[in-house]
């Protein structure tokens, strides 16, 4: 924690304009409070409980669980993703509120891992969702998971954790990729129509 604070202070000194300070502060609050939606997809699900409980205690870094996607900031995908699961994951991701982040655990979301030739798992998660941090390993231990969170925090503080913006800007690409595997079982229109328009606001 002390190291982090020193780093923060150093960063703060470099900022010049008041708006930059506000942005920095907002990012600081965002990185200090991360509500996590742990989506236990594969074998990595077992790594999440020790991460948040007494042994590794993620709460000291401001990481705590959220019950529904509406409340969550980050979705943690812990392992391989079957096509069926991916559909739910996309649904959950789209229901989260910006800014939102994705952490993928293990090698399976990176390149398929040991399921490289499976008929019903996807091989490369970032074709379908914008992944902010991937933690390699099969499976990564809780230390590595926490390291992943630290990397995410750094990214947030730098203002670079903008996967959500990427998803919104390149929605056509992502939706086309999703359509390739879902085919006619694609998610219904109401789940993502608003990505293609501005969406109402008041």
């Amino acid at each position: 924690m002390d190291n982090l604070n020193k780093k923060d202070k150093a960063q703060l000194k470099e900022l010049k304009s008041p708006m930059a300070v506000v942005d920095w502060a907002v990012n600081w609050f965002r990185k200090q409070s991360i509500f996590m939606l742990a989506y236990g997809t594969g074998c990595g699900a077992i790594e999440i409980p020790p991460t948040v409980t007494a042994r590794y205690d993620a709460e000291r870094f401001g990481v705590r669980g959220a019950a529904t996607p509406r409340q969550a900031d980050v979705i943690v995908l812990s392992g391989y993703l079957a096509v069926k699961t991916l559909k739910r994951v996309i649904r959950t991701y789209e229901q989260m509120q910006e800014p939102k982040y994705v952490i993928a655990l293990g090698s399976c979301p990176i390149n398929g891992g040991m399921y490289w030739d499976s008929y019903n798992t996807i091989k490369q998660l970032d074709r379908y969702l914008p992944v902010d941090v991937t933690v390699a390993g099969c499976m990564p231990r809780p230390e590595a998971v926490l390291e992943g969170f630290m990397a995410l925090k750094d990214k947030i503080q730098r203002g670079e954790a903008e996967g959500a913006r990427d998803y919104r800007d390149n929605i056509e690409k992502y939706k086309n990729n999703q359509k390739e595997i879902f085919g006619d079982k694609m998610l219904p229109g109401y789940t993502c129509d608003w990505y293609f328009s501005d969406g109402g606001s008041f």
């Binding site: 529904t68 739910r88 994951v89 649904r91 229901q95 998610l187 969406g199 109402g200 606001s201 008041f202």
Partner: peptide, 25 residues
Amino acid sequence: SLFGKKAPTRNLHRLDIAYAGELPT
């Protein structure tokens, strides 16, 4: 409504609800 400027509310479809990742029809 002051927050409304920075964080607009998006009006969602009535089936677009938090439903444990499932797709209600």
